[in-house]
Each structure stands twice: as structure tokens, then as C-alpha cells.
Design a protein around this nucleic acid. Sequence first.
RNA 1: GGGCCCGUAGCUCAGCAUGGAUAGAGCGCCGGCCUCCGGAGCCGGAGGUCGGGGGUUCGAGUCCCCCCGGGCCCGCCA
Length: 652
Amino acid sequence: MRQLTTILNKRHVNKEMTTDPLGSFKYEFAHEVNRVLSQLGSPLSFNLLQVARSPKDKKSFGLPVGFKAAKDLNKKPKEAAKLIAGSIDLSKIPYASKLITIGGYLNVVIERDALFRDVLDLAGKEELGKGVRKNVTVMVEHTSVNPVHPLHVGSGRNAIIGDSFARILDYLGWDVKRHYLVNDCNLQVAILAAGRSKVKKLKPKSKKDHWYGLIYAMANAVLELWKIRKGIAEEGEPINEWKETIERVRTQDPQIAEGVKEITEDYVMDLLKRYQRRDEKTKLLFRDVAESVLNGFIETLRRMGITYDQFDWESELIWNSWVLKALERLKESGYLEREGDAIYIDLNRAVRERENIRKVFGIAKEHLDLLISQEKLNEIIPPRFYLTRSDGTWLYTGTDVAYSLYKISTNANRCYNVIATEQTLEQREVRASLALMGYDPNFLIHLPYEMVNLIGVKMSGRRAVYITLDDLLDEAKRKVLNILARRGIKEEEEVDKIAEKVAVGALKYALINVSPMKVVQFRWERVLDFETNSGPFVQYSYTRAYNILKKVKQIPGTYDPSKLKSELEIELIYMLANFPERIQSSYLLMRPDLISQYANDLASLFNKFYEGHPVLNAPRDIKEARIKLVQGVKGVLGKALDLIGVPRPERM
RNA sequence: GGGCCCGUAGCUCAGCAUGGAUAGAGCGCCGGCCUCCGGAGCCGGAGGUCGGGGGUUCGAGUCCCCCCGGGCCCGCCA
């Protein structure tokens, strides 16, 4: 966390401050206070985040310097604040007009008109909080769902968070490359391929990812039942659930239920082995399956406005010898071991011997000694990190290490991996592998998120029990169309476009608006609720601002910001002024939900303003100022929607 | 058993990186507002031992420790 503060205090170094008027005020204020404190011999220091708006007078910003410095200066809080105030040079602080002390607080009264003017200008140009182009490439890997069944709400959360985070990085000035790892070399795909091989003659009857999802469930059911008969099934594989799965598939597609039968484990493993060895016939089977499902994904994701710069195929990592390059480097490290054809990294030894590996797992030397003496090291760190199976096929872990090697060979400066929290340990193991290969493990940054809990249903891809994104989008769209019909928007083509935008907004907002570290409690109603705190609510406010501006012939060149003096107007502008800080937070904390929360708050405040503040019908001077305000709100609201990937409708 | 995460209003969630100046939204419930830029809106009301207990501090929802409850991980699955 110390690191975070350091970043925040360095923010003034680049030119971004020019797009963050309030931030530059806060920074210089804290900086000036720090200067005086050190002059007075106090080691205390403040950062810009601590500068808070005064809830008392509403027009000043303050720091609790008196309370904090009381001891150092050997004075009461009030006197300490006054003493510090005496040496503050206001000319060093932009937008500062007056210094006051309230108890132990040292407050600066802001030059409101100047601040408002700068904020509104930047907001209107949609440049508030925008970073300068850095000419540094950053990679974001997200979605990367196994191509075995359609995208459901869980995978949707990944894609939406990942896409939003990429948009935030882009706005802040990085060149973002969005990558999708197509996992086509694992057991799940092999099971699907095995199923497909049993019904070669069938042609897809529905959207391909949905259709293949049925084959996948059927293949799983048949395989598990076979395992149960052979007595090699894992515990907790109840025969009934698999029979139910077969019936579920039968009701949707009897041909699949009839066609897919008798799949053995040996058959699946053999297929996988052949594919990884690039057997041409097997390749045709796997690629056809994986590409079909992936194309279904792409269609859905595209509908949601989520696109990628590159799709990286796991199989290519094997065939183009990235896995072998990784093995070579790991061999050089001396920690690569082998047990028959199963290859693994001796993590236990690596952790004991290598400081950089301990660092990846967050274990200090002293802690390590304690763990070793208590024989508890293996409880914390799995002793072996397997990369291949004993039949020589690559595990996901192995190709993931190779993938990391590939990533670091690009010109990217770092890579965010948007991956569920359940893979935290695996992500550390991969980072450790990167370190053993001689690279900086911090190149990879795990952006973790929790799962989606479908209330009342236990989702299972293997059993074809899930809510698909396609179904959610369609259902939301139906509801929007109903509302639009009542609102009298008739042009058919436009109605469809609007409904699509609103449906997408509703779904994306519902999945992004929770902190990534919390499990989303998902209900259909949540996506279909278009009231306050929803995507459509924010979109609605946006269209209100948009349509006011549309009726304005010309945005005034000059205006008087002091005409904006009602409490709501002032609050609105301060909220706009906070946007850059919000973006910074959401970047540093890897939390796109902070943007959606902000968008909702801004929309809500704007609606209140809208209710009681005529714009077009106001007297000329007030009208000019309010138009600038509306333009600023529209700009920031629009940009916030962009950052969370929610479309901007113009009517709805 | 060990590690990580979560616990704030009936429900779903902000607020915790910055300890500070009177704990916030939405949904649901109760009651109001469409001659006026779009009512997917606005206004008002009821509703809280911030999981519990210690500690640090002038001050703790926020920091530290212990405990309780829930989730995830500890696979030659991904």
C-alpha cells in the first residue's frame, strides 16, 4: 500500500495534471503543507487523497493538520493548525483564494469560478482525467473461456471487467492490446471433440456454441456413466445427475442424445494426445469444434461491444515450440524435474533456495525457517508444480507458463491477467515460473474477480445448466422493446438499435457494478431492473443531457460560471471535478465498478438538477452557464459509460 | 488442518488504499409530484449493536490482534 501512496504523490510529474484541475489543487495543497511541516521540524506528510471537501462550509477543502501535528509541535490542535497556516504560501496552490482554520483543520477556500471554468471546459471536451499517450504497450488477457459451451453469466463477468479495465488503461494513455487465450488443448475440449466424433453427420441446428454445449454435456454424461460402471469415477458423481443431464439434452436435441454414446477415458486421452502432436485428422476435428464455439463467443461478445486484438491458441504454443523454449529455460534454472513423462518444477526447493521465488509467494526468510522447522512448508506451497501429465500431454499450467514466456517476448511492458480468484495459487505458480526463467515476475499482474452465484440454481457447464449471455440479452431486449412501444418511438430500425443498446447496458452494468472481490448474487430481475442504479438509468440521464444540447443551436463561447450557484449546480460541478481521481482509483485498485458507481451517482444528481433547473427556458446569462454545465455532465457521463463499455443511446 | 477473500438497513451493495468534521444508495414497504428541456424520473417517511470482543488513537465502519459465520483454493482439472 505504501507503493500506492508513492504513485499518487508522483502524479504531478507527468502532464496528466492538466486534465485534472481539482487534483492539481489537492496535490499542491498537500505539497505546500508538507513543505511547511518539514520547515517546522515535523516529519509528518500528507498526500492529495487526504485533502477532503469541508462538510461545514462546502466551499473549502481541508486537511486535519492540527490534530496530526499537535504532538510534534507541542501545541493544541487549533493552535497547531494556525501556526502552519501562518507559513503557507497560497500562490503555490492553484485555485486557492483564502486560508482558514476550523478547529484542527486547515482549509483552503477555493477560487470557484476559475476551477469551475477549467473543469467544465475539460468535461465538455471529454478530456477530464484523460492521460497523455505514453507510447507504452500494456497487455490485457481476459475472457479466455474454454470453447466447450456458450458464454454464461460467470464468463460474462470476466469479459466485462477485462474489457472495462482495458478501456480505462487506454484512456489513461497506454497502448492496450487485448488478448484472448483459446484453450483448445485441454481435457474439456477433448471430451467435446470425442462427443462430436460420435455424431459426425449431424449439422448444427442452433447457434453453434449452444449446440456444441449440448454435445459437451452429453459427452460428459456418457463418459461419467462409463466411469461409474468401471468403478473409476471420482467420489460425488451421482449417477442420477448424469442421467438427468442426458434427459435435459434429449428434450433440446434428441439427435445428440441418441448419437453420443460410449465414450471411454482412453478414447478421450488418445484424442488429446493426437491433437497435441498435431495429428492432421485429429486437428481437423478439434479445430472445427473449437472454432465453431469460439465464433459463437465472438458473435455474442461483439454484440456486447467487446473485441480483441489477438486470439492466442494454446495449441500453437505447443506446435510453435513455446513450451519447449520454456522447458529449456526452466532446465537452466535447475529446478525442472521429471517423473517418467510427467514434468514438474520443484517448487519446494525453489522456495527454499531462491529469494525471488519466496517473494512471489510472500514468504519472508524468517517465516520460511519456521515453516521448515515445523514441516509446514508444503501446506503453504505445493511442493511440485506439474506442467505435463505422465502420458506426456501438456497441462494447462504448462502451456500457461509457455504463454507467459510468449507474452514477455512481445513489446508489452506488463500484462494483466483477468482470472477468477480461484486461480490465485496457479497465477502465483506461473509468476514463480517466470522468475525461474529469468524474468521479472511482476510482468504478470493478476486481476482477480469472484464468481457469479446464480441464486437458486447450481450452475454447471458439464451438465448444461447455465444462464447464457445470449438469453439474458434477448430477454432484456424484449423488455426494452415493450417499454419503447409504450413510449411511442416507432421507427422500426431505430427501435431495434436502441433496444440492443439498452439491453447491453443493463446486462453489463449488472455484472460490473459489484467490487470484483465480492461474489455477485445474480438474479434475473437485477438485469431486468431499469430503475435507479442500473445501466438504463445512467443511459437515460445521458439522453436527457444529450437532448437538451441537441435543442441548443450553438454552445455559448463565453459564459459566467458564477451564475451556477444553486447547491445542486455546485455539487454537480464538484462531482465532475472528482472524475479524474475516480479513474485513477479504479485503475490503481483494479476496480471498474468504481466507475459504474460514479456514473450512477452523477446520473442521479443530474436528474435532481434536471427536475428543478430549466436550461433552455432560463434567462440568457443563466442559460449559457447551464448549457456549459449540461455539456460537461454529458461529456463525463458519456465518458464514464465508455469506460465501463455501456453504449450511449441518443434516444430511448 | 493451512492459505486467501467476504461479513455495513429485510434484500442487493457503496464507504476501508487517504482514520477526522452528522454512517450512504438502490430494491422492497408507506405517502406525495406529469399545463413546464423526456415520469426508465423526482420529493418525503419508516428501517442500522457497521459479525463479536479486545487494542492503538484526541478520534475507528476504516488500522492491529483474537474469535464467530460464509465462500474459494490446497489436482498429472482449468
